[in-house]
C-alpha cells in the first residue's frame, strides 16, 4: 500500500521516490475478521447461528407437519423415521415445532436486541454527550430500573397491555434489557467526546447530531455490537423462561420454553419431549455466547498483534 507521493513540489524542490513507502496495512475491521475466523469456538457459534437462521426461514414456508396440528401420531411417541424427534403430549411433531420455535427464538432475540439497543444507545448517547442534568436524570432512571426485578416489569407490562402477542413480548423484554447498553454507551460517549477528533469536528462547525452520528457512534460501534450479541441469547433465555412460566407467547405457538414446560410434567414418561427443545435452547445459547466472546476478543484492540 503505497502512500501519497507528494505532488506538492516547492520551487526547485526535490521530490522523493515513493516506491518503497508503505503505510500501516489492514484496517480494524479486516483485522478483527481475521482474528474472529481464527477462533474455532466462535466459528462454531457462527455456524450454528447460520443454521438456525436457515431453519427459521424455512419454517416460515415449510415444516414436515403443521406446528399446531395435534394427533398426527401417538402421543408421547418416541423418535422414528417419520418423526425424528418423536411426538409430544398431544401428538404434535416435535421436529416441526422445534423449527417453528427457532423462528420465535430468533425473532425474540433479534427483536429485543434491536429494540433495546436503540433505547440504550439513544439514552446513553444523550447522557454521555450532554452530561449535566440530562445525565443525572438518565443515570437515575437506570439505577432505579436496576432495582426493580425484570420479571415484575414484564408481568406488569403483560397485564397492562393485556396481550401476549410476540411483538408485545419483545417490547416487554426490551424495556428491561436496555440498561447495560445505555451504561456502556454512556461510558463510551463520555470518553469519546473528549477525544481530539471530536473537538476537531466541533471546530469545523459540526452540529451535535453530526458529532453524535458521524463521530461518536461509529467509534463506539465495536463494543455496541458485542453488547448487542450478548443481548440476543439473554432475550431468548428470558422468553423461554417466561413461556415456561406461562407468560410467554400463547399456545399453540411452538416456543421452546413452552415446549419444555409442557413436557416437563411427563419427564419420567417421555423425556424427549422436554430434552429436545432444552437441548436446542442450550446449543443456541452456547453458540451465541461463543460468537459474542469471539467478537469481543476480535474487536478488542489489546488483542491486536
Amino acid at each position: 500500500m503505497a502512500t501519497a507521493p507528494s505532488d506538492y513540489v516547492f520551487q526547485d524542490e526535490f521530490t522523493a521516490d515513493s516506491t518503497y513507502e508503505t503505510g500501516e496495512a489492514v484496517s480494524l475491521w479486516k483485522d478483527a475478521w481475521r482474528r474472529l475466523t481464527s477462533n474455532y469456538f466462535a466459528l462454531f457459534g457462527l455456524a450454528v447461528i447460520v443454521l438456525l437462521l436457515l431453519v427459521a426461514i424455512v419454517s416460515q414456508f415449510w415444516t414436515p407437519y403443521p406446528t399446531w396440528k395435534q394427533g398426527i401420531g401417538p402421543t408421547y411417541g418416541g423418535p422414528s423415521a417419520a418423526h425424528p424427534f418423536g411426538l409430544d403430549q398431544v401428538g404434535r411433531d416435535i421436529l416441526s415445532r422445534l423449527m417453528g420455535g427457532a423462528a420465535i427464538a430468533l425473532a425474540v432475540g433479534l427483536g429485543t436486541a434491536l429494540l433495546s439497543s436503540i433505547i440504550g444507545i439513544a439514552l446513553g448517547l444523550l447522557a454521555g454527550f450532554y452530561r449535566g442534568w440530562v445525565d443525572t436524570v438518565i443515570s437515575l432512571l437506570i439505577n432505579v430500573w436496576y432495582g426493580i426485578p425484570d420479571l415484575l416489569v414484564v408481568m406488569l407490562f403483560v397485564v397492562i397491555i393485556n396481550s401476549r402477542e410476540l411483538k408485545w413480548i419483545i417490547v416487554a423484554i426490551s424495556i428491561t434489557a436496555w440498561l447495560n447498553m445505555a451504561r456502556l454507551v454512556r461510558g463510551q460517549t463520555l470518553a469519546l467526546r473528549e477525544r481530539e477528533f471530536v473537538e476537531a469536528a466541533r471546530s469545523i462547525g459540526t452540529r451535535d447530531v453530526g458529532l453524535l452520528t458521524r463521530h461518536i457512534l461509529p467509534n463506539a460501534l465495536g463494543p455496541i455490537i458485542v453488547q448487542a450479541t450478548y443481548l440476543i441469547p439473554a432475550a431468548i433465555l428470558f422468553e423461554a423462561f417466561l413461556s415456561f412460566l406461562g407468560l410467554g407467547a400463547p399456545p399453540p405457538e411452538p416456543s421452546w420454553g413452552a415446549m419444555c414446560a409442557e413436557g416437563y410434567k411427563s419427564l419420567q414418561l417421555a423425556a424427549h419431549v422436554t430434552l429436545v427443545p432444552a437441548f436446542a435452547l442450550a446449543i443456541t445459547l452456547i453458540a451465541l455466547n461463543a460468537f459474542g466472546d469471539g467478537l469481543r476478543d476480535a474487536l478488542d484492540p489489546r488483542m491486536r498483534r
Binding site: 502512500t3 507528494s6 526535490f14 521516490d17 518503497y20
Partner: peptide, 9 residues
C-alpha cells in the same frame, strides 16, 4: 530544507 518522502517501512 525538506527531506522529502517518509522514513522507510
Amino acid at each position: 530544507l525538506t527531506i522529502s518522502g517518509l522514513p522507510p517501512d
